[in-house]
Design a protein around this nucleic acid. Sequence first.
DNA 1: CAGTATCCTGGGGGATACTG
DNA 2: CAGTATCCCCCAGGATACTG
Lengths: 133, 133
Amino acid sequence: MREWNQVSEWTSGQSGEVPHTDCPVRKVLDHVTSRWGVWVLMALAGGDLRFHELRGRIPGVSEKMLSQTLRTLVRDGLVWRAVEPATPPRVTYGLTPLGRGAGEPMATLLGWIRDHAGDILATQSEYDRACAK
Amino acid sequence: MREWNQVSEWTSGQSGEVPHTDCPVRKVLDHVTSRWGVWVLMALAGGDLRFHELRGRIPGVSEKMLSQTLRTLVRDGLVWRAVEPATPPRVTYGLTPLGRGAGEPMATLLGWIRDHAGDILATQSEYDRACAK
DNA sequence: CAGTATCCTGGGGGATACTG
DNA sequence: CAGTATCCCCCAGGATACTG
C-alpha cells in the first residue's frame, strides 16, 4: 500500500491551494457515492435494467433524480445507455467494464459498513451516554 | 459475492417505504465519504495527529468543518480523541480498529478512482464530443 | 492550542406538471 | 415508456469573530 500521509497529492496532482472540489478524484468519488449513484451501481451490478425497472428497485428515488444520476454516470463512462427505437421507447442501462471496476470496491465498502453498522450504533449509544453524564 | 438485485435490503433491513436517509448504512457511508471525512480517515491512517497537524495535512479544510467532521467520526467510533490536560491543550486524534476497518475499503475505492481518473476524463471528452455534433 | 458561535449562500434534491 | 421543466426548500459548509 502506498503512503497516505500527503493528502495534498490528491487535490489535483499539485500541492496545496486547490480546493478539493476541483479534484477529479473528488468528483468521481462524489458521483459513485452520491445519494442515488450508489444504489444505481449496485442495482445494475445484478444485471442490465430498463429505466422503470431500475426505478422499481430503488425505493424512494424520483424520476428526476434517477435520470440525473444516470446521466452523470453515463458521462463518467461507468454506465452505458442503449435506446431501441420503438413505440413505446425501450431504454436499457448497464455497467461498463469501468463501472464494474468502480462498483466492486464500492460494494466492498458497503459490505463492510453493513457488517459493522451494529458495532457503530452501539458505539454511538455508549458515546451519548458518556456525554450525558 | 452476494446478491445486489434487491437494493431494498439496504434501506433498513426492511423492504420498501423507508427513505434511504434513515438507513444506518447510508448514514455511515455519508460520514466516511463526506467532503472532509475521507481525508481525515486517510490522513490518520498514516499515524495519529493533533488538531492543527491534521488541519495542515488537509488543504482547504476550515477549523469548523474539521472539528465537526472529527466529532461525527468520533461519535461513530471510527476515530478516538485524547486530551492531555495542559496549557496549551494537546489533543490527539487517531483511528480506532473500527476506523482502520472502514479506512481500508475506502482507500481501495479511492485508489481505484485515482488509477482510473484518466480513463474517466477521457470518456467524458469523448461523450461531450458525441453530444456536440 | 483547540476549538465554538453566528451569519449567510449555493445547489442538491423533492413535488408537481408536462412531452415525444 | 422514458423522460424534461419548473418551482422551491433545506442545510452542508464557507467566512468571520470570539473563548477557555
